[in-house]
Amino acid sequence: MPDRPPLPSALDLTRAQFDGWACVWCGMPLRKGAVSAGRAEGMLGEHDMSIEVYACPACAIAPRTPGAWVALRGRRDDGSPTGEGGGLPS
Score class of each variant (00 low, 15 high):
9 S>M: 07
9 S>T: 09
10 A>R: 06
11 L>V: 00
11 L>R: 06
12 D>Y: 06
12 D>C: 05
13 L>G: 01
13 L>C: 03
14 T>W: 12
14 T>K: 02
15 R>T: 09
15 R>K: 11
17 Q>M: 11
17 Q>L: 09
18 F>S: 15
19 D>R: 03
20 G>L: 01
21 W>K: 06
21 W>N: 06
22 A>R: 01
22 A>C: 00
22 A>S: 14
24 V>T: 04
26 C>H: 11
26 C>Q: 08
28 M>D: 15
28 M>C: 00
28 M>I: 04
29 P>H: 14
29 P>Q: 14
29 P>F: 06
29 P>T: 10
30 L>F: 04
31 R>P: 00
31 R>N: 07
33 G>N: 01
33 G>S: 01
33 G>W: 01
34 A>Y: 01
34 A>L: 00
34 A>F: 03
35 V>S: 03
35 V>I: 12
36 S>I: 08
36 S>E: 06
36 S>A: 11
36 S>Q: 09
37 A>E: 00
38 G>K: 14
42 G>E: 06
43 M>F: 14
43 M>R: 05
44 L>M: 15
44 L>Y: 10
44 L>W: 15
46 E>T: 12
46 E>N: 09
48 D>W: 08
49 M>Q: 13
50 S>G: 12
51 I>Y: 05
51 I>H: 01
51 I>V: 15
52 E>N: 03
52 E>C: 14
53 V>D: 13
53 V>Y: 10
54 Y>M: 11
54 Y>C: 02
56 C>M: 02
57 P>T: 04
57 P>H: 00
57 P>E: 10
58 A>E: 09
58 A>Y: 01
58 A>T: 14
59 C>L: 06
60 A>C: 15
60 A>Q: 06
60 A>W: 04
61 I>T: 10
64 R>Q: 04
65 T>G: 09
66 P>F: 05
67 G>A: 10
68 A>N: 07
70 V>S: 04
70 V>E: 15
